[in-house]
Amino acid sequence: MTYTLDADELSIREINKRLKQLSRTGAEIHIVNSRARHNIIVGLLDRCKITVQGSVGYYSASVSDGPEVIIEGNAGWALGENLMSGTVSVTRDAGASLAAGMRGGSVYVGGSAGARAGISMKGGTLLVRGNTGFLTGFMMQEGRIIVLGDAGESVGDSMYEGTIYVAGNIGSLGSDAKEEEASEDDLIGVWQTLEDHGIDQRPAFKKIVSARRLYHFDSLERLEMSAV
């Protein structure tokens, strides 16, 4: 069953309420006339397929667990924030703080992204076909960021864990980020992700990880000490 929700007729709150009901039925849902409005598709906990025919504003496809979201347009700030699982893809550009605090699933951007892409990421995969801005992977904690274009200044600044792969140029490395050689396994994994998204390119990647000097990685928490 396919349903169409018109954002010119329904408020965003009503759309999100309808999405919550419809997603439980496994329905396929189209959203039209989104016109870059904010908070479209939030808090969905079921597997369902949603296509937005147009741009979305801030916090779209955020705090969700399971949906498959396709946005045919641009996205504003914090697309896919705190995504637990599922897939989010946007055909054009995404704003700043893309996939902020994402924990799982995948976020794909067909165009370019703004500043702080993958900020505080805690899992999952973020794939950007174009460029990313300032502070890509800032304070990243887990997961993978793959950038097919260029990444801006301060890539991987203050990252704890996780990996950033950049095919193009890097503006500069952030504090406590370092470049290391990507292994064959790393590249196979990245290329698999590209293939999953129908991308034929198999470029070489710069791999950026934490240099692990900024934080006290070796000091133990009280509970950990008792376990040693």
């Binding site: 016109r35 870059a36 409005r37 904010h38 741009s55 504003g57 801030y58 641009n74 504003g76 054009r92 550009d93 704003g95 700043a96 703004g114 500043a115 801005g133 300032f134 801006g152």
Partner: peptide, 19 residues
Amino acid sequence: EEIALHSIFDTVADRVEPQ
């Protein structure tokens, strides 16, 4: 925000986010 562009244009062509 892009939402403001939609208020005066029927279609929002390539918009960029300055860095």
